[in-house]
Design a protein around this nucleic acid. Structure first.
Lengths: 203, 203
DNA sequence: AACTTTATTGACAGCTACTGTCAATAAAAT
DNA sequence: ATTTTATTGACAGTAGCTGTCAATAAAGTT
């Protein structure tokens, strides 16, 4: 099985798992149910995911990846907040249903500790990628302490903004102005902590 | 049983659990073993902790609390980085053995996903307390978006610095200059992201 | 001090998330 | 066409964890 096929399988299971979690709660959803809904055996399920909660990873990753792509496309000579204001539009990218599902997960993760744990570990894993981008930008090795600190800070902001967005869209629904509010939110948030990332550093 | 007694019991179990985890690995340590080592029944163990991994929480909390206390003592009119440089000394506070154990947990958490999850969730829980302190400092409600962002950023820095320290002390052992390096590390790290926290804001 | 009430513990049974093994099948390679 | 390899499902087993209940300890009342 190719890597792409494997990813599709993971994503497929993830969609079913999240739907079941949302419908009947995490605790009330068994691995057996998820496997059955996704049309695979329980063996395959546990081989694909280490826990039933981690079934949400593929969908969550979509949101995180959307941000990572934008960050990698961040051109030199422009403020990060400014770049986000222009380029970040996670709600429009990829299947809107998947983004909505991911937001549902983030909302559930507010109370479900196990989901929260998966979410946080996933976010932190993305920190390495952020560090790579920032390292190049700052002209330092990716494991430099200063780089790690900045990556962690950016990640933290990403988390708060995404959380806010997820709970916000739940209240208001995904309306036409979500992409707009979305971008503004992120840009504002990053403007708060990122003095190092403006073009004239520490200027 | 008083709350204090309950806390002592949690801490006692935590010490045994961490020791066993360090000696033989998390996977190879069963809840039964932990309970036996701590001199309680398995019933009591599961009543006290929701998972065997979360047994490390009381010890981890010590490190996080040390920081929280310093932050709460942060006087007005002085730079946060500067305050940390003077006031933060987690390695000296409380039992040195406990701090070393906590660091061992953080080191193990690098590879043990379940421990990492516990650590991250615990850190994030501390964010609320940070938000309270920062909210007062910034003259805003604790749930204001700007406050949450700052709290998350501070928390992220705390994480990176603590991680660094934990792995650093493992290499060099806890020597006399650890407190010094410790403070410098934290102060430097916060200096990197905290333009909002200097006395003259955005000055 | 005796007695009631309540809280805490341990023993035990049971459930389910998860692991390990192995045969069956499908895919790939020769 | 056949050997090899990879993937899956079935099944059994382990362990983390939950629920119940009786025993004991602690606390409060008279």
């Amino acid at each position: 099985m190719s890597d792409e096929q494997r990813e599709r399988q993971r994503l497929d299971i993830s969609r079913h798992a999240v739907r079941l979690f949302a419908e009947q709660g995490v605790a009330a959803t068994s691995g057996q149910q998820i496997a059955q809904a996704a049309g695979v055996s329980e063996s395959t399920l546990w081989r694909t995911f280490r826990s039933k909660e981690s079934c949400v990873e593929p969908l969550l990753t979509k949101v995180i990846d959307a941000f990572r792509v934008v960050l990698q496309a961040w051109p030199a000579g422009i403020d990060l907040a400014e770049h986000l204001r222009v380029a970040y539009q996670p709600v429009l990218d990829s299947s809107s249903a998947d983004i909505e599902a991911a937001h549902a997960v983030i909302r559930m993760a507010r109370d479900e500790v196990a989901l929260r744990a998966v979410y946080l570990v996933l976010l932190e894993r993305a920190e390495d990628t952020l560090a790579d981008v920032l390292a190049e930008r700052m002209g330092m090795p990716p494991d430099a302490f200063e780089v790690r600190v900045q990556a962690a800070a950016v990640n933290a902001v990403l988390k708060v903004a995404t959380d806010h967005l997820a709970h916000d869209t739940a209240e208001h629904g995904i309306t036409a102005d979500v992409p707009h509010r979305d971008r503004e939110l992120f840009a504002d948030a990053f403007g708060l902590v990122t003095r190092v990332f403006s073009d004239e550093r520490r200027g």
